[in-house]
Design a protein around this nucleic acid. Structure first.
Lengths: 248, 248
DNA sequence: CGGGAAATTGATGACTTTCAAGGTGTGTGG
DNA sequence: CCACACACCTTGAAAGTCATCAATTTCCCG
Protein backbone atom coordinates (compact mmCIF):
# COMPACT_ATOMS: atom_id res chain seq x y z
CA UNK A 1 0.00 0.00 0.00
CA UNK A 2 2.99 2.21 0.09
CA UNK A 3 4.02 4.52 -2.72
CA UNK A 4 6.57 2.48 -4.65
CA UNK A 5 7.01 5.06 -7.38
CA UNK A 6 10.76 4.91 -7.41
CA UNK A 7 13.14 2.86 -5.41
CA UNK A 8 15.88 4.17 -3.17
CA UNK A 9 18.49 1.96 -4.79
CA UNK A 10 17.47 2.20 -8.40
CA UNK A 11 19.45 4.04 -11.02
CA UNK A 12 18.65 7.60 -11.95
CA UNK A 13 15.98 7.92 -14.59
CA UNK A 14 15.02 10.71 -16.98
CA UNK A 15 12.08 13.04 -16.35
CA UNK A 16 10.38 11.39 -19.33
CA UNK A 17 10.54 8.01 -17.71
CA UNK A 18 9.68 9.31 -14.25
CA UNK A 19 6.19 8.36 -13.19
CA UNK A 20 5.89 11.71 -11.46
CA UNK A 21 6.41 13.84 -14.56
CA UNK A 22 2.73 14.73 -14.74
CA UNK A 23 2.62 16.21 -11.25
CA UNK A 24 6.20 17.41 -10.91
CA UNK A 25 7.93 20.37 -12.47
CA UNK A 26 7.98 19.08 -16.07
CA UNK A 27 4.19 19.01 -16.01
CA UNK A 28 3.50 22.09 -18.10
CA UNK A 29 6.76 22.23 -20.00
CA UNK A 30 7.40 21.67 -23.68
CA UNK A 31 9.68 18.84 -24.78
CA UNK A 32 12.55 21.20 -25.41
CA UNK A 33 12.03 22.87 -22.06
CA UNK A 34 12.14 19.54 -20.26
CA UNK A 35 15.33 18.77 -22.14
CA UNK A 36 16.99 21.97 -20.96
CA UNK A 37 15.71 21.44 -17.45
CA UNK A 38 17.14 17.94 -17.35
CA UNK A 39 20.63 19.01 -18.26
CA UNK A 40 20.65 21.45 -15.35
CA UNK A 41 19.23 19.47 -12.47
CA UNK A 42 20.75 16.94 -10.14
CA UNK A 43 18.69 13.76 -10.01
CA UNK A 44 20.88 11.80 -7.65
CA UNK A 45 20.12 13.17 -4.21
CA UNK A 46 19.69 10.40 -1.67
CA UNK A 47 18.78 11.18 1.91
CA UNK A 48 18.68 8.48 4.51
CA UNK A 49 15.92 8.25 7.09
CA UNK A 50 16.34 10.90 9.82
CA UNK A 51 18.97 12.81 7.83
CA UNK A 52 18.43 16.39 6.72
CA UNK A 53 17.95 17.69 3.20
CA UNK A 54 18.72 21.10 4.64
CA UNK A 55 18.60 22.77 7.99
CA UNK A 56 17.48 26.10 9.34
CA UNK A 57 19.90 28.99 8.69
CA UNK A 58 21.72 26.91 6.12
CA UNK A 59 22.45 28.74 2.90
CA UNK A 60 20.11 27.85 0.06
CA UNK A 61 21.54 25.16 -2.12
CA UNK A 62 18.67 24.66 -4.47
CA UNK A 63 15.03 23.70 -4.85
CA UNK A 64 14.09 20.06 -4.35
CA UNK A 65 11.46 17.70 -5.70
CA UNK A 66 10.60 14.49 -3.88
CA UNK A 67 10.84 11.38 -6.07
CA UNK A 68 10.27 8.73 -3.43
CA UNK A 69 10.06 8.62 0.34
CA UNK A 70 8.81 11.50 2.48
CA UNK A 71 10.18 14.67 4.02
CA UNK A 72 8.94 16.66 6.98
CA UNK A 73 9.72 20.34 7.32
CA UNK A 74 9.64 22.01 10.70
CA UNK A 75 10.46 25.35 12.25
CA UNK A 76 11.78 26.01 15.73
CA UNK A 77 12.24 29.13 17.81
CA UNK A 78 14.93 29.99 20.31
CA UNK A 79 12.85 28.52 23.16
CA UNK A 80 12.92 25.08 21.64
CA UNK A 81 9.29 25.24 20.60
CA UNK A 82 8.93 23.35 17.38
CA UNK A 83 6.20 23.13 14.76
CA UNK A 84 6.03 20.61 11.96
CA UNK A 85 4.98 22.58 8.89
CA UNK A 86 4.38 20.10 6.12
CA UNK A 87 4.87 16.54 4.99
CA UNK A 88 6.28 16.36 1.48
CA UNK A 89 5.38 13.33 -0.64
CA UNK A 90 6.56 12.26 -4.10
CA UNK A 91 5.85 15.03 -6.59
CA UNK A 92 5.99 17.74 -3.93
CA UNK A 93 8.63 20.43 -3.93
CA UNK A 94 10.44 22.07 -1.06
CA UNK A 95 12.97 24.79 -0.42
CA UNK A 96 10.91 27.89 -1.17
CA UNK A 97 11.31 29.00 2.44
CA UNK A 98 14.81 30.22 1.53
CA UNK A 99 13.45 32.71 -0.99
CA UNK A 100 13.08 35.31 1.72
CA UNK A 101 16.75 35.82 2.53
CA UNK A 102 18.73 33.09 0.80
CA UNK A 103 18.89 30.87 3.87
CA UNK A 104 16.43 28.24 4.94
CA UNK A 105 14.05 29.07 7.75
CA UNK A 106 13.10 25.46 8.46
CA UNK A 107 14.59 22.00 8.80
CA UNK A 108 13.82 19.35 6.20
CA UNK A 109 14.20 15.83 7.58
CA UNK A 110 13.64 12.53 5.79
CA UNK A 111 10.99 10.34 7.40
CA UNK A 112 12.33 7.38 5.44
CA UNK A 113 15.03 6.82 2.85
CA UNK A 114 14.24 9.41 0.22
CA UNK A 115 15.19 10.27 -3.36
CA UNK A 116 15.17 13.86 -4.52
CA UNK A 117 15.89 15.95 -7.59
CA UNK A 118 17.53 19.30 -7.13
CA UNK A 119 17.60 22.48 -9.16
CA UNK A 120 20.87 24.06 -8.03
CA UNK A 121 20.56 27.66 -6.96
CA UNK A 122 23.21 28.73 -9.48
CA UNK A 123 21.13 27.70 -12.49
CA UNK A 124 17.77 28.52 -11.02
CA UNK A 125 17.36 32.09 -12.17
CA UNK A 126 18.80 31.40 -15.61
CA UNK A 127 16.27 28.65 -16.16
CA UNK A 128 13.50 30.95 -15.03
CA UNK A 129 14.62 33.54 -17.52
CA UNK A 130 14.64 31.15 -20.45
CA UNK A 131 11.76 28.78 -19.73
CA UNK A 132 8.27 30.33 -19.53
CA UNK A 133 6.80 26.93 -18.73
CA UNK A 134 9.09 26.58 -15.76
CA UNK A 135 8.10 30.01 -14.47
CA UNK A 136 4.47 29.01 -14.70
CA UNK A 137 5.03 25.67 -13.03
CA UNK A 138 7.11 27.18 -10.23
CA UNK A 139 4.42 29.74 -9.54
CA UNK A 140 2.00 26.87 -9.34
CA UNK A 141 4.19 24.98 -6.88
CA UNK A 142 4.73 28.04 -4.72
CA UNK A 143 1.00 28.64 -4.76
CA UNK A 144 0.41 25.10 -3.59
CA UNK A 145 2.71 25.67 -0.64
CA UNK A 146 0.94 28.89 0.27
CA UNK A 147 -2.47 27.23 -0.07
CA UNK A 148 -1.34 24.37 2.16
CA UNK A 149 -0.16 26.75 4.83
CA UNK A 150 -3.43 28.65 4.69
CA UNK A 151 -5.47 25.51 5.25
CA UNK A 152 -3.27 24.43 8.11
CA UNK A 153 -3.64 27.87 9.69
CA UNK A 154 -7.40 27.58 9.46
CA UNK A 155 -7.21 24.16 11.04
CA UNK A 156 -4.92 25.17 13.91
CA UNK A 157 -6.68 28.46 14.53
CA UNK A 158 -10.31 27.45 14.38
CA UNK A 159 -10.84 23.71 14.66
CA UNK A 160 -11.15 21.22 17.46
CA UNK A 161 -8.56 18.47 17.69
CA UNK A 162 -10.83 15.78 16.23
CA UNK A 163 -11.78 17.99 13.31
CA UNK A 164 -8.11 18.58 12.63
CA UNK A 165 -7.31 14.90 12.47
CA UNK A 166 -10.38 14.15 10.35
CA UNK A 167 -9.41 16.84 7.88
CA UNK A 168 -5.86 15.62 7.75
CA UNK A 169 -6.93 12.06 7.01
CA UNK A 170 -9.27 13.28 4.28
CA UNK A 171 -6.47 15.35 2.79
CA UNK A 172 -4.08 12.41 2.72
CA UNK A 173 -6.84 10.21 1.36
CA UNK A 174 -7.55 12.50 -1.59
CA UNK A 175 -3.85 12.95 -2.14
CA UNK A 176 -3.35 9.21 -2.57
CA UNK A 177 -6.48 8.92 -4.68
CA UNK A 178 -5.31 11.62 -7.08
CA UNK A 179 -2.16 9.58 -7.60
CA UNK A 180 -4.03 6.41 -8.43
CA UNK A 181 -3.83 4.70 -5.05
CA UNK A 182 -6.52 3.63 -2.66
CA UNK A 183 -8.22 6.47 -0.82
CA UNK A 184 -9.35 4.12 1.94
CA UNK A 185 -6.16 2.37 2.90
CA UNK A 186 -2.76 3.93 3.16
CA UNK A 187 0.39 4.32 5.19
CA UNK A 188 1.27 7.40 7.20
CA UNK A 189 5.05 7.72 7.07
CA UNK A 190 5.33 9.91 10.16
CA UNK A 191 5.43 9.11 13.85
CA UNK A 192 2.63 10.04 16.24
CA UNK A 193 5.00 12.67 17.64
CA UNK A 194 5.38 14.33 14.26
CA UNK A 195 1.71 14.09 13.41
CA UNK A 196 0.50 15.41 16.74
CA UNK A 197 2.92 18.28 16.54
CA UNK A 198 1.81 19.07 13.00
CA UNK A 199 -1.80 19.10 14.18
CA UNK A 200 -0.97 21.29 17.16
CA UNK A 201 -1.92 18.85 19.90
CA UNK A 202 -0.30 16.56 22.47
CA UNK A 203 0.66 13.03 21.45
CA UNK A 204 -1.72 11.67 24.04
CA UNK A 205 -4.57 13.67 22.58
CA UNK A 206 -3.89 12.31 19.12
CA UNK A 207 -3.76 8.79 20.48
CA UNK A 208 -7.06 9.26 22.25
CA UNK A 209 -8.78 10.63 19.16
CA UNK A 210 -7.54 7.70 17.11
CA UNK A 211 -8.88 5.31 19.72
CA UNK A 212 -12.24 7.04 19.78
CA UNK A 213 -12.53 7.04 15.99
CA UNK A 214 -11.65 3.36 16.00
CA UNK A 215 -14.29 2.62 18.63
CA UNK A 216 -16.81 4.50 16.50
CA UNK A 217 -15.93 2.29 13.52
CA UNK A 218 -14.76 5.26 11.47
CA UNK A 219 -11.20 4.11 10.95
CA UNK A 220 -9.01 1.11 11.63
CA UNK A 221 -5.43 1.84 12.55
CA UNK A 222 -2.63 -0.64 12.83
CA UNK A 223 0.54 1.17 13.72
CA UNK A 224 1.05 3.47 10.72
CA UNK A 225 -1.45 1.80 8.40
CA UNK A 226 -4.79 3.56 8.24
CA UNK A 227 -8.01 2.11 6.86
CA UNK A 228 -10.98 4.41 6.50
CA UNK A 229 -14.02 2.23 7.13
CA UNK A 230 -16.68 4.95 7.10
CA UNK A 231 -15.81 7.82 4.81
CA UNK A 232 -19.12 9.60 5.40
CA UNK A 233 -18.75 9.61 9.15
CA UNK A 234 -15.19 10.86 8.77
CA UNK A 235 -16.38 13.69 6.55
CA UNK A 236 -19.10 14.67 8.98
CA UNK A 237 -16.55 14.66 11.77
CA UNK A 238 -14.46 17.10 9.81
CA UNK A 239 -17.35 19.55 9.92
CA UNK A 240 -18.86 18.79 13.27
CA UNK A 241 -18.20 20.97 16.27
CA UNK A 242 -18.11 24.01 14.08
CA UNK A 243 -17.49 26.90 16.46
CA UNK A 244 -17.96 29.19 13.50
CA UNK A 245 -17.80 32.80 14.45
CA UNK A 246 -20.12 35.26 12.82
CA UNK A 247 -17.83 38.13 11.96
CA UNK A 248 -19.02 41.47 10.75
CA UNK B 1 1.25 57.93 15.32
CA UNK B 2 -0.31 56.46 12.25
CA UNK B 3 1.57 55.68 9.07
CA UNK B 4 1.00 58.76 6.92
CA UNK B 5 3.16 57.56 4.07
CA UNK B 6 0.73 58.41 1.35
CA UNK B 7 -2.68 59.92 1.50
CA UNK B 8 -5.84 58.36 0.20
CA UNK B 9 -6.76 61.47 -1.74
CA UNK B 10 -3.39 62.46 -3.09
CA UNK B 11 -2.40 62.19 -6.72
CA UNK B 12 -0.49 59.22 -8.02
CA UNK B 13 3.24 59.46 -7.60
CA UNK B 14 6.14 57.71 -9.28
CA UNK B 15 8.01 54.81 -7.69
CA UNK B 16 11.00 57.14 -7.43
CA UNK B 17 9.09 59.60 -5.33
CA UNK B 18 7.32 56.91 -3.30
CA UNK B 19 8.63 56.69 0.22
CA UNK B 20 8.18 52.93 0.08
CA UNK B 21 10.51 52.35 -2.84
CA UNK B 22 13.20 50.92 -0.59
CA UNK B 23 10.98 48.19 0.82
CA UNK B 24 8.61 47.66 -2.10
CA UNK B 25 9.21 45.92 -5.42
CA UNK B 26 11.59 48.52 -6.91
CA UNK B 27 13.98 47.82 -4.05
CA UNK B 28 16.56 45.73 -5.89
CA UNK B 29 15.88 46.99 -9.40
CA UNK B 30 18.08 49.06 -11.67
CA UNK B 31 16.89 52.46 -12.83
CA UNK B 32 15.92 51.13 -16.23
CA UNK B 33 14.11 48.21 -14.67
CA UNK B 34 12.09 50.53 -12.45
CA UNK B 35 11.25 52.54 -15.53
CA UNK B 36 9.90 49.51 -17.37
CA UNK B 37 8.04 48.37 -14.28
CA UNK B 38 6.40 51.75 -13.91
CA UNK B 39 5.00 51.79 -17.40
CA UNK B 40 3.30 48.47 -16.78
CA UNK B 41 1.72 48.84 -13.38
CA UNK B 42 -1.45 50.49 -12.23
CA UNK B 43 -0.82 52.93 -9.38
CA UNK B 44 -4.35 54.18 -8.92
CA UNK B 45 -6.13 51.43 -7.02
CA UNK B 46 -8.25 52.86 -4.21
CA UNK B 47 -10.15 50.57 -1.89
CA UNK B 48 -12.51 51.98 0.68
CA UNK B 49 -12.66 50.65 4.22
CA UNK B 50 -14.47 47.28 4.37
CA UNK B 51 -14.35 46.84 0.60
CA UNK B 52 -12.52 43.95 -1.02
CA UNK B 53 -9.37 44.05 -3.12
CA UNK B 54 -10.29 40.56 -4.22
CA UNK B 55 -12.36 37.70 -2.94
CA UNK B 56 -12.00 33.97 -2.69
CA UNK B 57 -12.55 32.07 -5.97
CA UNK B 58 -12.24 35.30 -7.92
CA UNK B 59 -9.98 35.05 -10.95
CA UNK B 60 -6.54 36.54 -10.43
CA UNK B 61 -6.37 40.09 -11.63
CA UNK B 62 -2.84 40.93 -10.60
CA UNK B 63 -0.39 41.24 -7.76
CA UNK B 64 -0.84 44.15 -5.35
CA UNK B 65 1.43 46.32 -3.24
CA UNK B 66 0.04 48.34 -0.34
CA UNK B 67 0.92 52.05 -0.49
CA UNK B 68 -1.14 53.27 2.42
CA UNK B 69 -3.80 51.87 4.68
CA UNK B 70 -4.04 48.21 5.64
CA UNK B 71 -5.49 45.00 4.24
CA UNK B 72 -6.48 41.81 6.00
CA UNK B 73 -6.56 38.51 4.17
CA UNK B 74 -8.69 35.64 5.44
CA UNK B 75 -9.74 32.19 4.38
CA UNK B 76 -13.04 30.46 5.08
CA UNK B 77 -14.28 26.93 4.67
CA UNK B 78 -17.74 25.66 3.74
CA UNK B 79 -18.73 25.50 7.43
CA UNK B 80 -18.30 29.22 7.87
CA UNK B 81 -15.14 28.80 9.91
CA UNK B 82 -12.88 31.70 9.12
CA UNK B 83 -9.22 32.40 9.77
CA UNK B 84 -7.52 35.74 9.34
CA UNK B 85 -4.21 34.98 7.65
CA UNK B 86 -2.25 38.19 7.54
CA UNK B 87 -2.39 41.94 7.96
CA UNK B 88 -0.75 43.74 5.06
CA UNK B 89 0.83 47.11 5.74
CA UNK B 90 2.42 49.68 3.39
CA UNK B 91 5.23 48.03 1.46
CA UNK B 92 3.68 44.57 1.76
CA UNK B 93 2.48 42.64 -1.25
CA UNK B 94 -0.52 40.39 -1.65
CA UNK B 95 -2.12 38.14 -4.23
CA UNK B 96 0.34 35.27 -4.34
CA UNK B 97 -2.37 32.93 -3.07
CA UNK B 98 -3.74 32.82 -6.63
CA UNK B 99 -0.53 31.32 -7.99
CA UNK B 100 -1.81 27.84 -7.25
CA UNK B 101 -4.69 27.75 -9.72
CA UNK B 102 -5.21 31.27 -11.05
CA UNK B 103 -8.00 32.08 -8.62
CA UNK B 104 -7.68 33.58 -5.17
CA UNK B 105 -8.05 31.30 -2.20
CA UNK B 106 -8.64 34.07 0.30
CA UNK B 107 -10.49 37.33 0.75
CA UNK B 108 -8.57 40.60 0.92
CA UNK B 109 -10.50 43.30 2.79
CA UNK B 110 -9.44 46.88 3.49
CA UNK B 111 -9.29 47.73 7.21
CA UNK B 112 -9.27 51.40 6.31
CA UNK B 113 -9.21 53.44 3.11
CA UNK B 114 -6.29 52.00 1.23
CA UNK B 115 -4.11 52.80 -1.78
CA UNK B 116 -2.56 50.02 -3.82
CA UNK B 117 -0.38 49.48 -6.84
CA UNK B 118 -1.16 46.58 -9.14
CA UNK B 119 0.90 44.52 -11.54
CA UNK B 120 -1.77 43.28 -13.95
CA UNK B 121 -1.69 39.57 -14.55
CA UNK B 122 -1.33 40.08 -18.32
CA UNK B 123 2.04 41.80 -18.02
CA UNK B 124 3.28 39.85 -15.06
CA UNK B 125 5.07 37.01 -16.78
CA UNK B 126 6.55 39.27 -19.46
CA UNK B 127 8.09 41.48 -16.82
CA UNK B 128 9.48 38.44 -15.05
CA UNK B 129 11.07 37.28 -18.27
CA UNK B 130 12.78 40.60 -18.94
CA UNK B 131 13.67 41.91 -15.47
CA UNK B 132 16.07 39.80 -13.41
CA UNK B 133 15.80 42.26 -10.55
CA UNK B 134 12.05 41.83 -10.48
CA UNK B 135 12.36 38.05 -10.39
CA UNK B 136 14.72 38.36 -7.45
CA UNK B 137 12.51 40.80 -5.62
CA UNK B 138 9.37 38.75 -6.22
CA UNK B 139 11.07 35.66 -4.87
CA UNK B 140 11.97 37.72 -1.85
CA UNK B 141 8.37 38.86 -1.36
CA UNK B 142 7.00 35.36 -1.80
CA UNK B 143 9.57 34.12 0.70
CA UNK B 144 8.42 36.75 3.17
CA UNK B 145 4.85 35.52 2.87
CA UNK B 146 5.94 31.91 3.41
CA UNK B 147 8.08 32.91 6.39
CA UNK B 148 5.19 34.82 7.91
CA UNK B 149 2.88 31.84 7.58
CA UNK B 150 5.46 29.58 9.16
CA UNK B 151 5.81 31.81 12.20
CA UNK B 152 2.06 32.06 12.58
CA UNK B 153 1.79 28.28 12.38
CA UNK B 154 4.35 27.94 15.14
CA UNK B 155 2.43 30.43 17.21
CA UNK B 156 -0.98 28.82 16.71
CA UNK B 157 0.31 25.29 17.06
CA UNK B 158 2.61 25.60 20.04
CA UNK B 159 2.08 28.76 22.04
CA UNK B 160 -0.24 29.85 24.82
CA UNK B 161 -2.60 32.70 24.11
CA UNK B 162 -0.56 35.28 26.01
CA UNK B 163 2.62 34.27 24.22
CA UNK B 164 0.84 34.67 20.90
CA UNK B 165 -0.25 38.20 21.68
CA UNK B 166 3.16 39.14 23.03
CA UNK B 167 4.85 37.87 19.91
CA UNK B 168 2.38 39.68 17.71
CA UNK B 169 2.98 42.98 19.49
CA UNK B 170 6.73 42.52 19.21
CA UNK B 171 6.39 41.77 15.53
CA UNK B 172 4.34 44.88 14.89
CA UNK B 173 6.73 46.89 17.01
CA UNK B 174 9.78 45.85 15.03
CA UNK B 175 7.86 46.36 11.82
CA UNK B 176 7.15 49.97 12.68
CA UNK B 177 10.68 50.50 13.93
CA UNK B 178 12.19 49.22 10.69
CA UNK B 179 10.12 51.83 8.88
CA UNK B 180 11.36 54.66 11.04
CA UNK B 181 8.44 54.92 13.43
CA UNK B 182 8.25 54.45 17.16
CA UNK B 183 8.53 50.86 18.30
CA UNK B 184 6.80 51.68 21.57
CA UNK B 185 3.69 53.46 20.46
CA UNK B 186 1.57 52.58 17.48
CA UNK B 187 -1.90 52.03 16.15
CA UNK B 188 -3.37 48.64 15.39
CA UNK B 189 -5.68 49.10 12.42
CA UNK B 190 -7.72 45.97 13.05
CA UNK B 191 -10.65 45.26 15.35
CA UNK B 192 -10.40 42.96 18.36
CA UNK B 193 -12.48 40.48 16.37
CA UNK B 194 -9.95 40.38 13.57
CA UNK B 195 -6.98 40.23 15.88
CA UNK B 196 -8.39 37.50 18.10
CA UNK B 197 -9.30 35.46 15.07
CA UNK B 198 -5.82 35.92 13.63
CA UNK B 199 -4.33 34.76 16.92
CA UNK B 200 -6.65 31.78 17.08
CA UNK B 201 -8.50 32.73 20.28
CA UNK B 202 -11.85 34.04 21.40
CA UNK B 203 -12.39 37.81 21.52
CA UNK B 204 -12.98 37.55 25.23
CA UNK B 205 -9.67 35.82 25.74
CA UNK B 206 -7.84 38.53 23.84
CA UNK B 207 -9.58 41.19 25.90
CA UNK B 208 -8.63 39.47 29.13
CA UNK B 209 -4.99 39.13 28.13
CA UNK B 210 -4.84 42.81 27.23
CA UNK B 211 -6.32 43.68 30.60
CA UNK B 212 -3.84 41.48 32.42
CA UNK B 213 -0.87 42.91 30.53
CA UNK B 214 -2.15 46.38 31.33
CA UNK B 215 -2.49 45.53 35.03
CA UNK B 216 1.07 44.20 34.95
CA UNK B 217 2.27 47.53 33.52
CA UNK B 218 3.57 45.89 30.38
CA UNK B 219 1.40 47.78 27.93
CA UNK B 220 -1.07 50.62 27.89
CA UNK B 221 -3.95 50.28 25.46
CA UNK B 222 -6.44 52.95 24.56
CA UNK B 223 -8.84 51.56 22.00
CA UNK B 224 -6.56 50.75 19.08
CA UNK B 225 -3.53 52.68 20.28
CA UNK B 226 -0.89 50.54 21.94
CA UNK B 227 1.95 51.78 24.12
CA UNK B 228 4.58 49.31 25.18
CA UNK B 229 5.71 50.46 28.62
CA UNK B 230 7.96 47.53 29.48
CA UNK B 231 9.61 46.02 26.44
CA UNK B 232 11.66 43.57 28.51
CA UNK B 233 8.67 42.15 30.30
CA UNK B 234 6.87 41.83 26.99
CA UNK B 235 9.78 39.94 25.54
CA UNK B 236 9.98 37.59 28.49
CA UNK B 237 6.25 36.99 28.17
CA UNK B 238 6.80 35.93 24.59
CA UNK B 239 9.06 33.16 25.82
CA UNK B 240 7.44 32.24 29.11
CA UNK B 241 5.20 29.23 29.42
CA UNK B 242 7.31 27.34 26.97
CA UNK B 243 5.71 23.95 26.72
CA UNK B 244 8.64 22.94 24.56
CA UNK B 245 8.56 19.36 23.54
CA UNK B 246 11.74 17.35 23.51
CA UNK B 247 11.56 15.56 20.19
CA UNK B 248 13.91 12.86 19.13
C1' DC C 1 16.83 -11.47 22.92
C1' DG C 2 17.05 -7.23 25.67
C1' DG C 3 16.93 -2.27 26.14
C1' DG C 4 14.64 1.61 24.93
C1' DA C 5 11.78 4.31 22.13
C1' DA C 6 7.01 4.75 20.66
C1' DA C 7 2.27 4.37 21.62
C1' DT C 8 -1.74 3.84 24.52
C1' DT C 9 -4.63 4.65 28.55
C1' DG C 10 -6.15 6.82 32.95
C1' DA C 11 -6.57 10.59 36.34
C1' DT C 12 -6.13 15.29 37.29
C1' DG C 13 -5.94 20.06 36.59
C1' DA C 14 -5.00 24.20 33.83
C1' DC C 15 -6.20 27.01 30.22
C1' DT C 16 -9.56 28.69 27.22
C1' DT C 17 -14.17 28.92 25.46
C1' DT C 18 -18.88 29.84 25.96
C1' DC C 19 -22.75 32.26 27.74
C1' DA C 20 -24.34 36.38 29.72
C1' DA C 21 -24.45 41.15 31.03
C1' DG C 22 -22.85 45.69 31.13
C1' DG C 23 -20.10 49.54 29.46
C1' DT C 24 -18.08 52.53 25.92
C1' DG C 25 -17.48 54.67 21.61
C1' DT C 26 -18.82 55.78 16.90
C1' DG C 27 -21.53 56.84 13.06
C1' DT C 28 -25.69 58.24 11.05
C1' DG C 29 -29.92 60.59 10.58
C1' DG C 30 -32.91 63.97 12.15
C1' DC D 1 -25.08 69.70 16.05
C1' DC D 2 -27.03 66.43 18.97
C1' DA D 3 -29.14 62.12 20.09
C1' DC D 4 -29.89 57.54 19.61
C1' DA D 5 -28.88 53.04 17.96
C1' DC D 6 -25.67 49.75 17.21
C1' DA D 7 -21.39 47.73 17.06
C1' DC D 8 -17.38 47.05 19.67
C1' DC D 9 -15.15 46.01 23.80
C1' DT D 10 -14.76 44.45 28.54
C1' DT D 11 -15.72 41.62 32.59
C1' DG D 12 -17.68 37.70 35.30
C1' DA D 13 -19.12 32.89 36.10
C1' DA D 14 -19.42 28.23 34.59
C1' DA D 15 -18.31 24.51 31.60
C1' DG D 16 -15.44 22.03 28.35
C1' DT D 17 -11.49 20.87 25.94
C1' DC D 18 -7.06 19.58 26.06
C1' DA D 19 -2.37 19.23 28.34
C1' DT D 20 0.31 17.19 31.78
C1' DC D 21 1.85 13.58 34.70
C1' DA D 22 2.21 8.79 35.43
C1' DA D 23 1.97 3.95 34.47
C1' DT D 24 1.76 0.27 31.26
C1' DT D 25 2.08 -2.03 26.93
C1' DT D 26 3.84 -2.69 22.36
C1' DC D 27 7.12 -2.65 19.06
C1' DC D 28 11.58 -1.81 16.89
C1' DC D 29 16.54 -1.88 16.48
C1' DG D 30 20.88 -3.35 17.58
Amino acid sequence: MHLPITNFNQNTISCDACSLSNICLPHGLSASEVEELETSIDKTIKIKKKDAVFRSNQKMNGIYAVKSGAIKTSIANEDGQEQVLEFHFPGDMLGFDAFSNGSHSCDAIALEDTLLCKIPVEVFDGLCERLPGLRRELRHQVGKEIAHNQHLLLSLGQQQTDERLANFLLLVSSHYQSRGFSNKEFVLPMSRQDLSNYLGMAVETLSRIISRMTDDNIIKVERRVVIISDMDKLKSLAHSSCRAKSSA
